[in-house]
Computed example of a mutant assay.
Amino acid sequence: MNIEDLLREALADMSVEAEPPPPSRFLRSAPARPRRRWGVALVSAAVVAALVGGSTFLIEKLSAAGPEPADRTVVLPPKPAPPRPLKEIWPGAVHTLPLELQNGLEFAPQVFLDDRTLLVRTGEGPKPGFWAYDLRTGQARRHITFAAPAGTDHTSYVTMSAGQLLWFTVGPGGMLDIFTVPVGGGTARKVTSINQTMKYGDIDLMAVAGGKLYLSRRKGGVYTVPMSGGVLALMPGTDRLHLMQWPWAAYPQPPMARGYMPRGDVIVNVLTGERMGRFKDPDESASPWDCLLVWCVQASTNEARRRDGSGAHQMPGLSYDHAPVLDRFKTLTTRDDTVRVFLYDLATGDTADLGIREKAGTRQASSLLEQTSLHPYNAPVLFYRLNGRMVVVDLTAID
Rank of each mutant, 00 (worst) to 15 (best):
D308L: 02
Q364S: 08
V339C: 05
F342S: 05
A347G: 02
D337I: 09
P324S: 13
N302Q: 14
S366C: 00
S300K: 09
A347V: 00
A312D: 05
E370L: 06
H322W: 15
V341L: 11
P316Q: 14
G349E: 11
L318C: 14
V341A: 07
T338M: 11
E303T: 01
T333P: 03
L326H: 13
R357Q: 14
L332Y: 04
W295C: 01
E358F: 07
F329I: 04
S366H: 10
L354G: 02
L326T: 09
L368I: 11
D353I: 06
Q364D: 08
V339F: 02
N302M: 12
T334G: 04
L326R: 15
P316D: 13
L368E: 05
R357I: 06
T372A: 07
L332V: 01
Y320K: 15
D350V: 05
K330V: 03
A323I: 08
T362K: 04
T334W: 09
V297L: 13
M315V: 15
F329H: 03
P316R: 14
A299F: 09
V325C: 09
L343T: 09
I356Q: 12
S373H: 06
R305A: 06
Q298R: 15
C296P: 01
S367I: 11
R328M: 13
A323R: 07
G309C: 04
D350T: 08
Y344L: 00
Q364V: 03
S300D: 10
F329D: 03
H322E: 15
S373N: 06
E358Q: 12
A360R: 13
S310F: 01
L332M: 02
T372W: 00
P316G: 14
L346F: 03
T334P: 01
D345Y: 07
T333Q: 08
S300Q: 07
E303A: 02
V325L: 14
Y320H: 15
D353V: 03
E358P: 00
M315N: 08
Q298K: 15
T348L: 07
H322F: 15
D336I: 10
K359S: 11
A360E: 08
R306I: 04
L346T: 02
Q314H: 10
Y344M: 00
A312T: 11
T301L: 07
R335P: 01
V341C: 04
A352G: 05
H313L: 07
